[in-house]
């Protein structure tokens, strides 16, 4: 069990393996899209790990990447369709980044490194916790960027008007992708400093 929990901190996909950074920069300007994106990646990662693990002995090694892509694409399209039907507003904010989950290195990485050589249940858990590890960073970055960039959290104002009358201003840079990169970089820095 301890091994499965590693992606949450010790072996976090974003801040230790630096995978999946692109989407982490793109969707974290606000908390809500970040949470939905994290959930989407977790679902896709867990279930494609499960399916690939179930059929792992029947997959011809020469076309295993093709098979993996077909399975991952299946889940991504499924998630995208559901978001468009039930979370329309958020799916518009995420725009192309839901489709781009297909190319998220975390998912392909877990399929290659874990699901192809392990039983279904451990594979499912491995996918689940890697997705959650990714989500954890997204949520952390999303909270900081939304509060400092727009003064809101989940769309609700959290900073009282008093701050603004005292001359406080929202940090416009927080809304832009470069600031996400700096924040993720800072997380990596803190992580490395603590581990060495």
């Amino acid at each position: 069990m301890k091994k499965f929990l590693e992606p949450l901190s010790k072996n976090n996909p974003i801040i230790v393996q630096t995978l999946g950074v692109c989407s982490a920069l793109a969707v974290t300007a606000q908390l809500k899209p970040a949470v939905v994106m994290a959930a989407a990646v977790t679902v896709v990662c867990a279930f494609s790990n499960l399916i690939i693990s179930l059929i792992r002995n029947t997959i011809p090694p020469r076309i295993r990447i093709v098979v993996q892509l077909v399975v991952v694409s299946f889940f991504v399209i499924l998630v995208d369709q559901f978001l468009q039907a039930y979370l329309y507003e958020t799916s518009k904010m995420l725009s192309v980044f839901v489709g781009l989950i297909i190319t998220n290195c975390i998912i392909m990485g877990r399929l290659e490194a874990f699901a192809l050589s392990h039983k279904p249940l451990p594979s499912f858990l491995d996918g689940l916790f890697n997705g959650l590890g990714y989500g954890l960073v997204l949520v952390a970055v999303g909270v900081v960027r939304e509060v400092l960039g727009q003064g809101t959290l989940w769309g609700y104002p959290v900073l009282s008007d008093k701050f603004y009358t005292l001359g406080y201003m929202n940090n416009g840079l927080m809304v832009l992708p470069p600031m996400a990169l700096i924040l993720v970089g800072s997380l990596i820095w803190i992580k490395n400093a603590r581990q060495s």
């Binding site: 093709v66 077909v70 299946f74």
Partner: peptide, 14 residues
């Protein structure tokens, strides 16, 4: 055969 069947199942479900 393997990839054809897989793709047909996936496309059909979607």
């Amino acid at each position: 055969l393997y990839i054809s069947v897989l793709v047909i199942i996936v496309a059909g479900t979607l």
